[in-house]
Amino acid sequence: MSLDKATVAHIAKLARIAVPEQDLPGLATELSGILKWIEQLDSVDTSKVEPLSSVVNATLRFREDNITDGGQRDAVLANAPVSAQGFFVVPKVVE
């Protein structure tokens, strides 16, 4: 699969990474090269194979639905680039 500029711009938007227009062609070539290399997997017949879900064969554990932690507001906010009055602050998102 070869990626074009428009596809790369779309993926970048999905990934929330700003990519300047002039970088799109180079990135398309680079990503296409990696995907082309990955395509050797097409030569393997996997029609009768189940996808692996876990290497440890473990089922997830259950626990009692009890509160085990909490009340850590200040610790949670300590690394925020901007916070005020006990909240994270972001640019306005409502009109």
Partner: peptide, 27 residues
């Protein structure tokens, strides 16, 4: 704008190899 803040932050914060892998993974 919030979406722009995400996109600009992630563009500046991640290096080329990390961006490359996030884009491959997203694709």
């Amino acid at each position: 704008e919030l979406a722009d803040m995400y996109a600009q932050t992630r563009a500046a914060g991640f290096g080329a190899e990390v961006r490359r892998r996030i884009l491959i993974g997203t694709y």
